[in-house]
Design a protein around this nucleic acid. Structure first.
Lengths: 204, 204
DNA sequence: CTCTCTAGATAGTGTCGCTATCCAGTGTTG
DNA sequence: CAACACTGGATAGCGACACTATCTAGAGAG
């Protein structure tokens, strides 16, 4: 498959494919001559992954990390998850007060040793942002977050090993980045449904 | 309070404050002369909100919508929620297949009339993105999403009316935009904790 | 032999969230 | 009352990002 057909099949413009090649997001095709290479289905799939990640707001650098994990997955599932999360978690300044985040972690039934530090920092950052806007999450709501997100994580984890190792890698790495928009969208819809049940519909 | 003190108290540089004024994110101060205005605590709070929203990835246009809702909140809680969600939901192309999203909505116990169309479109968009990356959410996991996100929405809604009307507006509008990063961060941590419980810690 | 396609390199585009500079007018200080 | 920092307002520029356009020299197909 030449580059123009790859473009046609994936829906990604040729110059963009060249850009992804330059940025090492897409592996080179098999070279048949100095100015010729051929691509396969793996490239089409990879392009799908790249576009999905970029659309999800993961930057080029983040995508590069994700495809790195896809190509050389750690064998330990825990490390795999950590690598996937690290790849899509934006860098966060380290001068954060972690105490509140660590307290939440404990309420969830974990502790700092069970997590990569970046994840804890991300929680702390989110809390700090809320604080800066003068917003406090009620305790009852926070309890609900901890309980239901914990249950949700368990359910995701339970579903993972049913598939092959390779699928597990895809699941964890892509799921981390791509399932999040779905979760947010579902939460908003759930709120809308709950609100309409409670107050009756306004005028959609 | 003059602009430099507003800058000092809020931590936002003076040129940036001027920019927010130009963009109508921040209301003008009370004019005491053609080249003088004075600002109050409301402006400091508003700056906190703006920065939090911008940091959360809500663009300038989105922030403008949010502050619009903050200044003229709909009286119906349902409409309030819809306006808040609409403000922070990025525009999405309308040529989407909504059937899968509507099926999910039904499984959740709601229907299309209970939601603003943009929200359903957002779900459809997230599903399409996953599909494009060749990723399928297992049915069991989807069930868990629907169940726990529904419960989560109920808990949030139950906590809202305890406070004053004004706080309710703040809660809904800001919560929509700012709580989401917290939820995502907590989910990632929860996954890590669950994984370490299951497989034992790797090497954080 | 021509015509299109290719890899590769370099430079340019559009958007976004600021940031820098300038200006004339103002309040404050000595 | 004079010097001077500061003000609101306008305009222009910047840096990051994700492409996109243009060029060149070489392949390959008819």
């Amino acid at each position: 498959m030449r580059i123009s057909e790859l473009s046609a099949q994936s829906g990604v413009p040729v110059p963009t494919i060249k850009y992804y090649l330059r940025e090492k997001l897409l592996p080179e095709g098999e070279r048949s001559s100095p100015t010729q290479a051929s691509y396969g289905v793996a490239h089409v799939q990879r392009l799908g992954v790249i576009r999905a990640l970029v659309d999800a707001g993961v930057g080029i650098a983040g995508v590069r990390k994700v495809v790195g994990v896809l190509e050389e997955p750690p064998e330990n599932p825990y490390d795999l998850l950590g690598a996937a999360n690290a790849a899509v978690t934006p860098e966060v300044s380290s001068d954060l007060d972690l105490t509140a985040a660590l307290a939440l972690l404990e309420r969830m039934g974990g502790s700092a040793e069970h997590c990569f530090p970046d994840q804890v920092a991300a929680v702390a950052h989110a809390l700090a942002t809320l604080d800066r806007a003068g917003f406090t999450v009620p305790d009852a709501v926070m309890d609900a977050y901890l309980e239901h997100l914990g249950a949700l994580a368990e359910a995701e984890l339970a579903a993972t090993p049913d598939t092959s190792i390779e699928d597990a890698v895809r699941y964890v790495v892509l799921g981390t980045a791509l399932v999040e928009p779905l979760i947010l969208a579902l939460r908003r819809v759930a709120e809308q449904v709950a609100a309409s049940r409670r107050f009756g519909s306004g005028a959609p």
